[in-house]
Write a protein that binds this DNA or RNA. Structure first.
Length: 461
RNA sequence: GGAAAGGUGGCUGAGUUGGUCUAAGGCACACGCCUGGAAAGCGUGAGUGGGGGCAACUCCACCGCGGGUUCGAAUCCCGCCCUUUCCGCCA
């Protein structure tokens, strides 16, 4: 929060708050005290906001007074015209008033814009239950499922396994496009498709989500609604010649389905699931996870999205998280759940749980899902509200949530790694077999990997 | 890509010779009366955002978006966006 909001420790008010608490020196402690006193802490970014807000109100009062007077004269003109009385004497000053109002409106517009631009770069406020900390080292493990399997042979990673099985081809993907792309072939492609269908079927039939198949390209307004713009444009692929972007997650089109709408209170909670490919530029991740499928420019994901009443959102978050975990449990993949600390939290989220799957080749857990409650942060930006049926009911912002359920590519590679056999076969989890034509194993090829085979064929011809 | 028509409140739909439009009517909605209960009927209320006020309330803006003409624009002019239909192309 402090990292995200930039509160200076030199500020007198902030200093005083720390003094009351006995001037702690430990960064985590300082952070906690400042967060606990959030209503008093002076955050550098917020000061100009307050000034702008005051100027805005002042300007509104001026403009509206002028407009009110103009309206009154106008009404009188209308009245006299209807009564066929002379009214030319009232024309004087009207034009001037109009021009003045227009001038003031322009100034107000500028203030509004400055205010909005500032507001758009301010991150969400973490929920009180979010662990306080500087970075991911302060994340808190919530629970574990399953026991990582003990291998009595040398485990291979999914890149080697995929090559042996002849189902994963990075060389040709690089030829087609470039680095951080992949081609799945044969049973590998089918396994991806099986996972997508299995996840969608589980969420729609077992967990009560409604399936959505949205556009994979959205406009800038949608990106702004969910918080990707304006701050994170460098993470996105933008279409040349259009104000359109490739979606980095289904969260964007699905959450924005209800942008600028007022939902019926009785329709909440609304739960959607959607399969989409996701496109990310991965700017700034050079050198990280360069091997394999972990970090690709394009990957498949099944997403869960909810719209609910504010009082329900934390309960819904737990349910959503459990729905995502259920996929891993059904597949039999060991995982753990981690609550992100304030320092590791995304820009838009108030609370986030990551689900991390066990990867034998890395001997560690890696993120496979991220489940967040955005509270009303996205709803405010996208204008998603709800209202009760009672005539006196107030309109209010919904809370939005989403989570991966799950990242398909990472699930695919986790299956290869966790269920590999010494002979190179990979056991297919039982729940997936109906989607794989009853097949029990992915069988290795007895011939060279595809790229090499093609090269030999070309040489021979 | 070419041509035409059109965008008004939750929906429908009137309003386009500029002037009490402070946007009719209908449907749907909420509350009340009536009823054993409901329907029908009758009555009342009800859009969104913002400013001021403890509040009752009050003021401002909004007829796809932006600009222009005018004392005054839902209405006239220009640009853009979107929708529908027809033609062309295409999976």
């Amino acid at each position: 929060m402090i990292k995200r909001g930039d509160a200076s420790l030199e500020n007198p008010t902030n200093k005083a708050i720390l003094q009351e608490a006995g001037n702690p020196t430990e960064p985590a402690k300082i952070l906690e005290i400042l967060i606990n006193n959030a209503s008093r802490v002076v955050i550098d970014k917020l000061q100009p906001l307050e000034e702008l807000d005051a100027r805005r109100r002042e300007m509104i009062a001026k403009v509206e007074a002028l407009q009110a007077e103009r309206n009154n004269v106008n009404k009188e003109i209308g009245r006299r015209k209807a009564a066929k009385e002379p009214c030319e004497d009232l024309f004087a000053g009207m034009k001037e008033m109009g021009n003045q109002a227009k001038e003031l409106e322009k100034q107000l517009e500028e203030i509004d814009q400055a205010l909005n631009n500032m507001l758009l770069t301010i991150p969400n406020v973490p929920n009180a239950t979010t662990p306080v900390g500087r970075d991911e080292s302060a994340n808190v493990e919530v629970r574990r499922f399953g026991t990582p399997r003990k291998f009595d042979f040398q485990v291979k990673d999914h890149v080697d396994l995929g090559a042996n099985l002849g189902i994963l081809d990075f060389d040709r993907a690089a030829k087609l496009t470039g680095t951080r792309f992949s081609v799945l072939t044969g049973p590998g492609a089918r396994l991806e498709r099986a996972l997508i269908n299995f996840m969608l079927d589980t969420h729609t039939q077992k967990h009560g989500y409604r399936e959505i198949l949205p556009p994979f390209i959205v406009n800038a307004e949608s990106m702004k609604g969910t918080g990707q713009l304006p701050k994170f444009e460098q993470d996105l692929f933008k279409l040349q010649g259009f104000d359109y972007y490739l979606i980095p997650t289904a969260e964007v089109p699905v959450t924005n389905l209800y942008a600028n709408e007022i939902l019926k209170e009785s329709d909440l909670t609304i739960a959607f699931t959607a399969y989409t490919p996701c496109f990310r530029s991965e700017a700034g991740s050079y050198g990280r996870d360069t091997r394999g499928l972990i970090r690709q420019h394009q990957f498949d994901k099944v997403e869960l999205v909810k719209f609910c009443k504010p009082e329900d959102s934390y309960n819904e978050l737990e349910k959503l998280l459990d729905n995502a975990e259920e996929i891993l449990r059904l597949l039999g993949l060991p995982y753990r759940v981690v609550a992100l600390s304030t320092g590791d939290l995304g820009f838009s989220a108030a609370k986030t749980y990551d689900i991390e799957v066990w990867l034998p080749s890395q001997n560690t857990f890696r993120e496979i899902s991220s489940c967040s409650n955005f509270e009303d942060f996205q709803a405010r930006r996208a204008g998603i509200r709800y209202k009760g049926s009672d005539a006196k009911a107030k309109t209010a912002f919904v809370h939005t949530l989403n989570g991966s359920g799950l990242a398909v590519g990472r699930t695919w590679l986790a299956i290869l790694e966790n269920f590999q056999e010494e002979d190179g076969r990979v056991r297919i989890p039982e729940v997936l077999r109906p989607y794989m034509g009853g097949q029990e194993y992915l069988e290795p090829l007895n011939r060279p990997a595809p790229a090499k085979a093609a090269a030999e064929m070309t040489a021979a011809s």
